Amino acid sequence: MTLEKFTAQINGFTFWREFTFSQNRFSPRPGQQLELADSFVWLGETAFIIQMKERTEPKDDPDAERRWFRGAVLRTAVCQIRDSLRFLDEHESIAITNERGQRHEVSKADLAHVEKIIRCSAGASLPEDCRMTRHHISQTAGFIHVFERDDYAGVIRTLGVPDEVRRYLEYRQRSIPRLSGSAVKEEDILGAYLNDEELPGPTSHKVLERLVDDAEDSDLTPIMNRLADHIQNPGEGGDYARILLEFARLPRSAWRMVRERLDLSIRQAMQREFAKPYRFYYLAPTAASCSSRCTPTRRRVRRGSWLEGRDCRTTPRPRNTSPRLPVVSA
């Protein structure tokens, strides 16, 4: 699987297809076609601009691989990131298509936070100093995250919650420039983030060994990824995405509250019991309220059975109830 297809797949699953865009070509004038980014994730006021570079014919010569890395990743991809920012500056809005085929207009005025990411897939002979490159500072684009293919996938699969990924990128940007040449792996940065360490160290990755899987108690991704399939006459506007967006903004602790109420509704429906709607309120960082209700009829149980989908990934998550707290041992 190519890097672009792999990225579209993992982003579409984690950030949901409604907010993942890989068809980003637009024509500002007749005869001209530009591309906003290789991949674009748009979650309300937050966006991820992602450019990708894949070494299709790697060499055994480390110097050749170093030249490829410097040219393709640190020059070409950085220039493309700058172009993406420029396109947003120069155009009032840009039409892009998400993974569900729905077209939306994105403008710079919509975005308060823009994360810049380069994903690369290099050959085995890439020198270690290149492989350890975690970021790049551009005079015009600012801080740019640099991820190897597997490192990015590991972060996304471990965190799993869109808001957690956003928080992790913020932590990564704050901590990496302060490392002063310390040799840390991506797993160290991830472990330090989960353990609330001020800075990652060479042993921070050991925290990941103590993660426990709480997917059955908190994972909403299988539910949200199927929501559109269970809406009658959704139309072309995708207005239901506004509901999804509120869930995408919530931390894992709130997801656990949602999942608890969904499971209660399913259980009562299967037992043919009627209950008042379950509600919860989450007031920070943005006010959001959510309610769920399930009428105990056989038809509702059948239609609601998709909520219990067990084909979700079993990724390790911190067993905790706050937006982000230190993990505990199993």
Rank of each mutant, 00 (worst) to 15 (best):
Q173H: 13
E197D: 15
P251C: 03
E216W: 06
G238C: 01
P200C: 08
G201E: 13
N233W: 15
S253N: 12
N233I: 13
P222A: 09
D163S: 05
D163L: 11
Y193N: 08
R252S: 07
E260M: 02
G181P: 00
H205L: 14
L244N: 02
V207S: 03
Q232K: 15
R178C: 05
A183H: 00
Y193D: 01
L208K: 03
A215L: 01
R210I: 01
K206R: 14
D196R: 06
A254V: 06
E209W: 13
G201L: 07
E164M: 04
L244G: 04
R252Y: 10
L208E: 09
S218N: 08
Y171M: 05
A183L: 13
A248K: 00
R259K: 14
P251G: 10
S182V: 04
F247L: 14
G191E: 10
A241W: 00
V212L: 15
E197I: 07
R261Y: 07
E170S: 10
R242K: 12
L169K: 09
S204G: 13
V184G: 02
V258Q: 06
G160N: 03
D219M: 03
F247R: 02
A192W: 08
I176L: 12
G201F: 05
T221R: 03
L245D: 07
S253C: 12
L208W: 02
N233S: 13
Y168P: 00
D163N: 07
R178Y: 08
I176Q: 02
V212Y: 04
